[in-house]
């Protein structure tokens, strides 16, 4: 399989997306990273899932993890509530989120090339694009599904993972309710 065959559409967020919305998108689509797109929907950066978890924590708790034990339930809820008032752009400006440029492979890249690029950069996502256009994103779960299938570990779930894009998980639910505004598919506009 080539990168073009594995490329899929994933939900994207923008700098204006609030922390709470980002958390909801990650939960609804079971993502392990968030793709930040520009106004035309083309992915420009990725935020690993581990960073998203840590935005709930104030910097001082990250500096001193013992303080996490001092919070009672109400104080913990207060912390989570703050995510409704802060956008990803705010968090990026405050350097609490440090999105990185998405690594990129050519459409004809092999599975080995994709895995090599992902493991070198510790990224769960990689962009498939050539000079002419953006084709989509290869996710870690889809590339592992392809590897499992090639290794003879085929199943209905594996085939479904290879056939259906992550964005389809939310088509009948989240996207229809949200109007697809905050969680457009990466590359839908560019295709």
């Amino acid at each position: 399989m080539r990168a073009i065959d594995l490329a899929e559409q994933v939900p994207t967020v923008h700098k204006e997306t609030t922390g709470a919305e980002a958390a909801r998108i990650v939960a609804e689509f079971r993502l392990n990273g968030l793709v930040v797109a520009d106004d035309s929907g083309v992915p420009i950066a990725v935020i690993p899932g581990s960073q998203l978890l840590s935005v709930v924590l104030p910097q001082y708790v990250r500096d001193d993890p013992h303080l996490a034990h001092a919070y009672d339930e109400q104080a913990a809820d207060d912390l989570c509530a703050k995510l409704t008032t802060v956008t990803l752009g705010d968090l990026i400006d405050a350097k609490r989120l440090t999105p990185a440029q998405l690594p990129q492979v050519e459409p004809d890249a092999t599975v080995v090339e994709i895995v090599s690029a992902m493991s070198k950069l510790h990224y769960p996502l990689i962009v498939v694009a050539d000079q002419a256009r953006f084709h989509g994103v290869v996710t870690m779960s889809r590339v592992l599904a392809a590897i499992a299938q090639a290794a003879g570990q085929d199943s209905d779930l594996i085939r479904r993972r290879l056939d259906k894009d992550i964005i389809d998980r939310g088509r009948s639910g989240y996207l229809s309710e949200a109007g697809g505004d905050t969680a457009r598919g990466a590359g839908e506009d560019a295709r």
Partner: peptide, 10 residues
């Protein structure tokens, strides 16, 4: 809010 914190847990 400070009085509700639980110092022993630290």
């Amino acid at each position: 809010a400070v009085m509700a914190l639980t110092p022993r847990e630290t």
